[in-house]
């Protein structure tokens, strides 16, 4: 029982999730687990922005799209290796996030949600725009190749990709954990809960908000890059409102202001739709919708808060 609360737990957990699937999972299952890692990073990006900083975004799918396209274009047009595209994608998305964060500063809660929602609606159209056709491949999108394992490692491409994504994810999760536990995290939460007090304490709200936006965009963009490599394909219609809302659902279900919640949220958005899909094409949406409403009423802190509540009760 003390295993979960132990400080070594994250490391034990990491080694377990790295090794066990390689030994037992089929290639398709590995693909799914890789996508869980991808989604976990994206949801974590949204958690930082919305959960910790209180800026409600319904358009983070746009950053995911930019990350995916940066990687796809660099691999497709210039033959740059997949791993080398990720820093570019991170920097570009952080930049775009910063720029979008600037006008967002002036938008109080609801307005920001509305604007980012509009961004989500417009994203596929922008990706299809004919002036960028030469790079983006227009409606057709871009097909990219699955990378092989390097250094002659005895792993098939799916296994290698899983480990690669997991490594990137682990780095980002450690980064985020340290961030939210420290001074910056306290400032982010103070801005969310007590903006006036935060300002009085000398916190530069504008700077924190725009940088959080950049950070969130960077995480989400990296997720997009990894997602593109995993799926080996990018096309505009995959990056519309449903994608952004999927991240939103993942955030709410996992728990907004929680690092571990991002993992639970990612598991939810990866596996629940697959299960629901067997009932009807419309079922995943209905499940998302009803779950969202139910969580807002019953468990606004997400699954992470449920675990916190259960932990507090002596067994």
């Amino acid at each position: 029982m003390n295993l979960i609360t132990s400080r070594y737990f994250p490391w034990v957990f990491l080694v377990a999730v790295a090794v066990l699937p390689l030994m037992f999972a089929s290639d398709y299952k590995l693909f799914q687990f890789t996508m869980v890692v991808v989604y976990a990073i994206a949801v974590l990006g949204l958690n930082l922005l919305t959960g910790y900083n209180g800026q409600v975004s319904l358009g983070n799918g746009a950053f995911y799209a930019i990350g995916a396209y940066v990687t796809a274009i660099m691999m497709d047009k210039w033959d740059i290796p997949y791993w080398a595209t990720i820093p570019f994608s991170a920097v570009i998305c952080a930049g775009v996030g910063f720029l979008i964060g600037l006008p967002a500063l002036r938008l109080g809660g609801m307005y920001l949600a509305l604007t980012t929602f509009a961004l989500a609606v417009a994203t596929p159209q922008l990706l299809k725009y004919k002036l960028f056709d030469d790079y983006t491949g227009g409606v057709q999108g871009i097909v990219i190749n699955k990378p092989d394992a390097p250094f002659g490692l005895p792993l098939n491409p799916d296994q290698w990709l899983y480990l690669f994504a997991l490594t990137v994810g682990a780095i980002l999760f450690i980064l985020a954990t340290n961030l939210v536990r420290g001074r910056i995290g306290r400032a982010m939460r103070a801005i969310r809960d007590q903006p006036l007090a935060a300002e009085a304490m000398g916190i530069d709200i504008a700077m924190f908000k725009t940088r959080t936006f950049a950070l969130s965009a960077m995480f989400t963009g990296i997720a997009g890059s990894l997602g593109a490599i995993t799926i080996q394909f990018v096309a505009p219609d995959a990056f519309g409102v449903p994608l952004s809302l999927t991240f939103f659902v993942g955030m709410v279900v996992g728990g907004g202001a929680s690092i571990g919640g991002a993992i639970m949220g990612a598991l939810f958005i990866q596996f629940i739709p697959n299960i629901a899909d067997e009932i009807s094409k419309a079922a995943p949406g209905a499940v998302y919708g009803l779950i969202l409403i139910a969580f807002m009423f019953l468990l606004p802190g997400g699954l992470a808060s449920l675990i916190r509540i259960l932990k507090r009760k002596p067994a």
């Binding site: 809302l245 919708g289 009803l290």
Partner: peptide, 11 residues
């Protein structure tokens, strides 16, 4: 926002 999005998805 969560509830509105929930309604949107449900409808």
């Amino acid at each position: 926002v969560g509830v509105f999005i929930g309604l949107l998805l449900t409808f």
